[in-house]
Design a binder for these strands. Structure first.
Lengths: 153, 153
DNA sequence: TATTGTTATACTCTATAACTATA
DNA sequence: TATAGTTATAGAGTATAACAATA
């Protein structure tokens, strides 16, 4: 039985909210550093997410990318443009509706994304290696709740 | 007993790392929106953290701020400068060591910070209100592990 | 010499406003 | 008219490199 459940305490949504405000920014900082530290400083966190989305959703549009990332269309447009210039993304035009774009990840982009993911995952895992299996299970449970509460698309 | 513990599964540090990479950026997006949505769009997430640190640590230096935020000294210097211009922070010079600055939060900065925190906390709490007390306890447990693993200063 | 902090420069992220092209 | 996307503009966050002031 996990330590946190030995004597059941009532946790309010407000307390969780406070903890989110205090803890997450620091973890995100480390995530940014981890990503910069691999394969020649290639991708920012938002670019990584953008590529991962395009990889999952073949022929996605700029609007879909914006919606997933939770940013405006101009922001997504600029970000995609940078990824195109970097050779990570290919833009095609939808022949049915010529306003829409069909974004595709390139082989280079796929490799780039996987390298960054592998490196950052290892860096995170190194930090988490000090935790017991029980604690890792608790962390995963917490993340699952976060995913459920804040999932987009 | 929480659902996640009914049939104990082994969770690896790598799996937790992957989940962190996928889940946290989206939550941070919402945090940014929440902060922008209160009291006239006053503070960014980094500015909020900066103010909170200066509030906790009276007479802190730029170097200490940089260390806490996990950024370089120029980055912290610029950020503090913006907060000074906004009237949220006061800079004094250490009379013992005239190279060091002594950063102090102003009353206006304190109010600003508390308004933003209250607003963002409420927004987060609203999202989390759908979760059961048990799930909130699990989330808090996960955040506690994160805090322990990634705490600065 | 070492440390504290700033300035200069450059890039990304982000938003709003205004625009073009297509439907 | 409505939608998809881009361009223009502005400001914040971030880093590195070079510098000034102080110890």
């Amino acid at each position: 039985m996990p330590a946190s459940l030995k004597q059941p305490v009532t946790v309010t949504a407000e307390e969780c909210a406070s903890e989110l405000l205090e803890v997450l920014p620091g973890v995100m900082n480390d995530m940014r550093q981890f990503m910069r530290g691999h394969v020649g400083d290639q991708l920012s966190v938002p670019q990584f997410r953008c590529l991962a989305f395009i990889n999952r959703h073949g022929a996605s549009s700029v609007t879909e990318v914006a919606s997933f990332l939770g940013v405006t269309k101009p922001t997504a447009s600029v970000m995609v443009d940078r990824l195109v210039k970097a050779g990570s993304v290919l833009i095609l035009t939808d022949s049915q509706d010529r306003r829409r774009t069909q974004l595709h990840i390139t082989d280079a982009g796929k490799a780039q994304m996987q390298d960054i993911r592998r490196g950052a995952r290892q860096d995170f895992a190194k930090v988490l290696a000090a935790q017991s299996p029980q604690e890792l299970a608790e962390l995963m449970a917490g993340l699952t709740i976060l995913r459920r509460s804040f999932h987009r698309i």
